[in-house]
Nucleic acid binder design. Structure first.
Lengths: 345, 345
DNA sequence: GGCCATTATACTCACTATGAGTATAATGGC
DNA sequence: GCCATTATACTCATAGTGAGTATAATGGCC
């Protein structure tokens, strides 16, 4: 139990996971690979193995070469380049996942798998070099996170009633569960906070509302599951990534990693909205980024807007020296208050 | 190079690091242990080994039991409890450090050491159970981060001139280095950003201004080093922790993890100031936490203030349901602008 | 050409938060 | 009773936010 020496050999494995995001056609997308649903092969993912049989999407996963890779991030860049043919730009470490049994093969004597997950942003829908890798909409996996067309249906129809049932299921936990559900999902007048993506996913997991929960624990209360399933705990990692990105966009100019060199302000707004999962006030968004010094006009015109032609802007790097936290302030974008029509029903 | 199978046995080791912070006597403090300066023994730290010879402070480090510990965080809590006798309250994963040669023994055939670092907050200066563990002021290690009595001397006297020298040392890097130095250290009118603790440490590392840099790379330009040295890359981890905490305090009520159950508003302010490294406007701080709903009066009185007795307050949990990002807003605490006397000289 | 839908862009206005004060209230020490 | 010291209450100018209205250019359609 407290053998202080980390000696024992193949009990532990370290892997790297990449959440590679892009925004195309106003949808946030994530690069996925295909895993066999039964006994998945970690260290694979992007490798050249053949995976027949039922499949599950998952995140690209690769190894660290302990003797060769100078840093973890360089290791990630190396194998994403090698196997997916994508040269990553913005990369940031997300979180390290190491729960026991996150790889089911642990139950049958497999090693404990620790995964260091990274978030990477790429500019457009690059076609990955690897056949099995493909882009998928982030909100296919996390449909309750997209409020751009109003409160997501899955929230009223499935999540809210199921959560209420879950809250009442255990008397001793009831108060605590209610509190958490209300805070994370913005029930009962509590404001909806767009950044709490992970907390929401974990609540759904506990409540057995995502397929991964019952798959891992083999309790099967025969409830309908929400969102598309992912291999391992990769959906949790995706949730972590989205939450982090939603937070970051507010105080760092990360959106510009996702758009082209020049863009109209409306294109930029649509990109931010895709990440935030909410609609923004157009005039205020413009004021924020323009007068906030985040962008500068190029003088060039984009005529294909469907209406009046728009000016093309570019990111204004000087803002980094001028302001301490330059980001697309998301003016109240995450602040959905008591008035939200969701909380009414 | 691209052996996709992470099989080879003792090439890789995973450890856990704890940055355990408390604020006592208006100073932020970190729990440290003693490492032998020459060939340090990782996996030790808190273990019962004897470490004679020259010593270096470092962070408590412990192993993960792959078969026993359900999660990484529980593993950390377990060995901190077992070896330091401290029951941790607030714990949050910080970052995973895995650069090659971060453990010098790698150079002589030792395994690659990956460390998952955690930030933990404890309420007061608990006496650790382990003899070699002791509390040390965070600003002993990062003296340029404490602006509470004005711009730190080490900044004018050593850092700024040395950085200017470093900037000019390499013609091809000059523009880039100047930009980074100005932005991270608030030179040339750029505002000082209290949260960029890690960026500042890394810049000092690159510039050879911290002992760890030359120790690891054995280039020795005979320059004076700033701040107290730490074993391995533990000072980098500490910098990561302080930066993270400074950020978090603004949107999460983490300060309350560091103060007693009840407190005067001034005590709370002093605690925030200790973390932020800057002084705050008393009346505005009061307005922020009181009217912001973060605290509520208890009706009790603390008479030992040195002046008029003060009311004792407590954290108001309901704020978590009311506001989306409840924190001690640090009103411009981090915004030190052009007027800063530091940037004048 | 003239009307319309559509998008771009400028400006207004109420409200709130922030930074920086002034003013007053209780204490203890002398 | 005066003073130093801290607590607490208010004020005020300014900047930022949320939510509009108003006007400017386009293309499509008749």
């Amino acid at each position: 139990m407290s053998e202080a020496k980390p000696m024992s050999a193949p009990a532990l494995v370290v892997g790297l996971n990449a959440v590679i995001l892009a925004v195309t056609d106003e949808q946030p997308r994530v690069l996925t690979v295909s895993f066999p649903a039964g006994g998945p092969i970690e260290g694979g993912g992007l490798a050249e193995d053949e995976h027949p049989s039922p499949r599950l999407d998952g995140l690209p996963t690769g190894p660290l070469d302990p003797a060769g890779d100078r840093t973890l991030e360089l290791a990630l860049r190396r194998w994403v380049r090698a196997y997916a043919g994508i040269e990553l730009g913005y990369v940031e470490q997300l979180y390290t996942f190491g729960d026991r049994f996150r790889d089911p093969r642990e139950r049958s004597g497999g090693p404990r798998v620790i995964s260091v997950a990274y978030l990477a942003l790429v500019r457009e829908n690059v076609i990955p070099g690897h056949l099995k890798a493909r882009w998928r909409g982030v909100y296919e996996y996390l449909p309750w996170e997209d409020w751009r067309s109003g409160p997501p249906r899955v929230l009223h129809r499935q999540i809210e009633p199921a959560l209420r049932e879950w809250i009442g299921r255990d008397r001793s936990e009831e108060a605590d569960r209610r509190e958490r559900a209300e805070v994370t999902f913005g029930l009962a007048g509590t404001p909806w906070n767009g950044e709490r993506v992970l907390e929401r996913y974990e609540l759904l997991f506990e409540a057995g509302l995502v397929a991964e929960a019952t798959r891992d624990a083999k309790a099967a209360p025969g409830k309908r599951r929400v969102g598309r399933e992912m291999a391992f705990d990769h959906r949790r990692i995706l949730a972590t990534a989205l939450g982090r990105l939603r937070g970051k966009v507010r105080y760092r100019p990360v959106v510009f990693e996702l758009v082209a060199e020049t863009f109209t302000l409306f294109q930029l707004q649509r990109t931010v909205e895709a990440l935030a999962g909410v609609r923004l006030h157009k005039q205020n968004f413009r004021r924020l980024v323009d007068r906030g010094g985040l962008v500068e006009g190029t003088g060039l015109i984009e005529p294909m807007t469907g209406g009046r032609p728009a000016e093309l802007f570019r990111f204004r790097r000087e803002v980094l020296r001028e302001r301490q936290a330059p980001g697309v302030g998301l003016p109240g974008a995450f602040r959905r208050g008591v008035d939200s029509s969701y909380t009414q029903s």
